[in-house]
Design a protein around this nucleic acid. Sequence first.
DNA 1: TTTATATATCGCAATATTACGATATTAAAA
DNA 2: TTTTAATATCGTAATATTGCGATATATAAA
Lengths: 109, 109
Amino acid sequence: MGITKTEIYSTEHNRLGTILKVLGHPARIAILQYIINQKACICNDLVEELGLAQATISQHLKELKNIGIIKGSIEGKSVCYCIDEQVWRQYQQDINAFFNQEVTVTDCC
Amino acid sequence: MGITKTEIYSTEHNRLGTILKVLGHPARIAILQYIINQKACICNDLVEELGLAQATISQHLKELKNIGIIKGSIEGKSVCYCIDEQVWRQYQQDINAFFNQEVTVTDCC
DNA sequence: TTTATATATCGCAATATTACGATATTAAAA
DNA sequence: TTTTAATATCGTAATATTGCGATATATAAA
């Protein structure tokens, strides 16, 4: 099959699943970290910074844009990417809500 | 290709990527949430709870076990799964360390 | 011992992802 | 206007993931 049966899960679980899936790749983590470190926006520095082809970087950026966590604005002939702080904080909350749950275990294990 | 070039990323980014990738599927989020809700361990209730085939649930459980976030212990003819609290807290920290970074944006955007 | 139940694993089909070269597209620079 | 540089998109190959039926395995129950 290869296709996720999204219709059987709650909206919240699908949402969280999608976000974490996009974040679940070292290139995209590295891209986000680089954008955060540079504070300002960047563009094709990423191609040199990570060792991936330009097409590949562009594709990863597209996925990050799809979930809204970054946004790009045209800056001459290059594009300036940066974190969307509002979306970032929203996802931060969503992920914290899941991970900061009280987890207790009874009997076995 | 279809294969991630792990050798070009830092250990930390690979680690975080792997964890988030496993968590990045609604079935696995739902499984974790169910295990947390039931506090104690569960087994094949999941097959009825979610609407997936037994083989599919078993496979998702295996991936969760692979990253150590759950552990199972044999309980008669069934298996009792529960959160590994220590690993959970470790991942909680790792994810928080990434997400609770101060994110600021300069100029453009 | 035979049967039933719970899980794991295998093998497979359908689809998704990763990566990249080649090729647009767009805007600055010459 | 031509050239150059930065991105995006297309097409494609290699590989991974999702899901499931069939089957193995192991233990309790009859």
